[in-house]
Structure formats: structure tokens, C-alpha cells
Amino acid sequence: MRLTPNSLLEPVHGLLRAATVPVDGHTMCPDRLLRYLEIKAHHLIQDQDWDSIRVVGGYDRTAVVSRHEKTGKLFNIERPTATVHGRDLIIKAFPGADYVQHYALIIATYLAMTGRPADAVTYQPPGEEECRAAVEALDLELDGDLVIVGWGLQHLAPTDGVWTRGPGYAWQRADVASRRVVFLGFLHSIWGDVAGRVVARLAELGARDVVYVGKVGVLAPAIEPNRWLATGNESLVGGALVTWDDFFGNFAAAQADVQTGLHVTSASILLENRDWLAKHAEYAFVDPEIGPMGAAACRAGIRFGYLHVISNNLARHYPADLSNERHGDVLWRRAQLIDRIRGIIADRLANTSVPSPRGTRP
């Protein structure tokens, strides 16, 4: 469906109300949760009141850009944008069902926590065609390459490399341990199901391996954030366990500073309360992207692997969490872990073979 300024304000079928998340019982303490929401919420929502706020799928950088967008990094800097229609506000998030829901929950919970009415916040889940079309803007020439996508790429890719830019993304190619590697970063978030479509698109374009580098939450209370890496090859996605052909094999898990275990996929940090934690106590890690990416790799017949910084602990409160990721000590510790990720990937490439073309792999 094509969204026009008039159609955005008309009643629509499938419009959902964003429920506020109860602060009591959430895995983040209230002051940290509020700080996390303040970092994410568009400044127009923080600065004034609106009769209605609707979150829709749409990548529109001509709309009002949030003053809270990140600085000092190359990728994942863009937030959802906004258009004003009198007393009504339309928020445009990159098209993905999980991201649209997640951002609506951010807005509703932020309003509730700041003593403002949240019942006017609704969201319109984007259709599959709209979501797929948004990812099809990604266009690279790949021929069996390993694609490394995600976070920290400016520290993983060669410092003298040149980034080639496309609509909402940038990439560069390099040789690592005699293997062709493409580093791919997005300016916008590839949250949840969007990340799965990115893997499917990369497979269509000719990738044979995809590695995702990012940040993951841990569920075991003894593991301190920003001191460990995480990896694995299984995730609970929509109630079903998905296992993929792991690029790392047992190599990454054998490293002394790497944790491994079962991953569970969650559409939004806002949904991860104490009840959710109790139901998933046997799992090791949580994030929105790993599961959809692994499932997409399975369907496409390519290898996938993740190697993430453990960024926060849901079961125990530590000084570092998702509300203070820009603190100097956090940045320093993560820089050391990024160095480890670079080394583990290079060592893995030096000790692995290039996969056969799809359809001929034994």
C-alpha cells in the first residue's frame, strides 16, 4: 500500500493500540528504563503533546529528523522520522513488523512514565510486500563472498578502505586471510524481521556466508556486561527452535572469552519483563535479530554465524546496561572486544574452506 499524507490520517484496518509496558516487573529498573526511552523517543514527542501518534512503516529522510540521532559513528545512527499534521503526528520507522511495534511501545511507555496520556499511540504493521521492497533497495555484486554485517564495522573493516554508499547503507570489500569479505553497514536499524530479510537478500545477491556482529543481552545473572562475547547456532523464533549451519562451527565457542548457548528471539526490549525472564530461564541470550537471520540463512541454504558483545544482563542489575552505552568505560571495554571479534573472524577464515556453490554442498 502506498502511503500518502492524506491516507496516513484516514482510519485503517489492522491499526493496533500500543499498550504501555508496566514499569514494575520489568528487567530494567525504572530510572534506567526511562533513560533508555529518552534516548530513543523522537524529540517532537518529548517536546510537546499530540492528539494522536501513529507509527507506520516508511523510510523517509525528508521528514523531521530526531535531534536524538546518534553521532560519532558511521552506522545505525538514524532514528524514525516524523511528519506533523496539525495536532496529529506520524512516526515513520524502517518497514518491519517488529521495529514498528517496538517503536510504538517505546513511545507509549515513555509517555506513561512521564505522566502523559499514552492511549493515543497506535501502530500500523507494514505488509510483507512493503517490508520486502524496502530491503530490495540493497544492491551489491556478490560472488560467494563472506558478508559481515552489523555493529562496530568501522573498527572491523580496513581503516584505509573506501565505503561505497547506497540508499541507507554503505559497504566495502577487502581480502581477509585470502578470502573475499564484504563489510556491510546500515544507517538505519535492521531490527527483528528486517534483519532476516537482509540475509535473504544477501543470499539472492550471491553471498555464501553471513556473519552478524552486534550486541546481545544475557540471561545468566553471573555474566557481567561488556566483558564477554557470545555465539551459538540455535534460536527460539516464534515458539520454534531454529538451528543453522554455523559459519564458526565450534571455533568461536572454544575461545576463552566467548560464551555460548541457546538464544531466544524477542521483538522488543519492552516485552522482556520478569515473567518473560522466568519463562526463558534455560536460554542464554536474547536479541531481536539473530533468530530471524539464522532462519533466513537456513531457507536460503547459506551459512550464518553471530559473534556479539554481551551488552546487558536481564537477570541482575550491573552498572552498565542499555541506558548508558555511551559511557567512556563502556566504550573502552567494547573496543577491546571488537579487537577480539576481528581476530576470531580472521583466524576462522584462515582455518576454513570456501563453501561450495548452493546445491553442491555435501
Rank of each mutant, 00 (worst) to 15 (best):
G301S: 06
K73M: 06
L37A: 07
A104I: 06
Y212I: 04
D160V: 09
A240K: 13
D49F: 11
V12P: 11
V182E: 03
E128G: 09
A320S: 04
Y283H: 14
Q124N: 10
I53F: 07
H308I: 03
A19W: 01
T62H: 13
A195C: 13
V199P: 00
R342S: 15
N6V: 15
D119L: 07
L236A: 06
D193M: 09
D60N: 15
G359A: 07
I90Y: 00
V354G: 01
G161I: 05
H188A: 13
P95L: 09
E10M: 14
R361Y: 04
T4A: 09
L270T: 00
A108V: 02
T360K: 06
D175I: 13
K40M: 15
H43Q: 13
N226V: 11
A104T: 08
P11Y: 05
V309N: 13
A195K: 03
T109R: 09
G168A: 08
L111A: 09
D24E: 15
T265D: 02
G206H: 06
F183L: 00
R180E: 09
H308S: 10
H42C: 03
D51Y: 08
V309Y: 06
I148E: 07
C298Q: 12
Q48K: 09
V12A: 14
L262T: 03
I148C: 03
H85D: 08
V199M: 00
D145G: 12
V286L: 03
Y103L: 05
S52W: 02
V194A: 07
V56L: 10
N313Q: 01
T122W: 01
G144T: 00
V194T: 06
M113H: 09
L37C: 01
W244K: 09
P221A: 05
I269P: 01
D160C: 10
K279W: 08
W163G: 03
Y110A: 00
D257E: 15
D209C: 11
V162R: 13
R35T: 12
N6A: 15
I338D: 01
A222G: 06
W276F: 10
A220K: 14
D246P: 04
Q101S: 07
V258M: 14
I310E: 03
I269A: 12
W171E: 11
I338Q: 12
A93R: 02
T164D: 14
G86A: 10
G58V: 09
P362N: 08
R17N: 15
A284C: 10
Y169N: 00
T243F: 12
I190K: 01
A295T: 04
E78W: 13
E289R: 04
G144Q: 02
V55W: 02
V100W: 04
V149C: 15
T83H: 11
A19Q: 13
F285M: 03
H68A: 12
E10S: 10
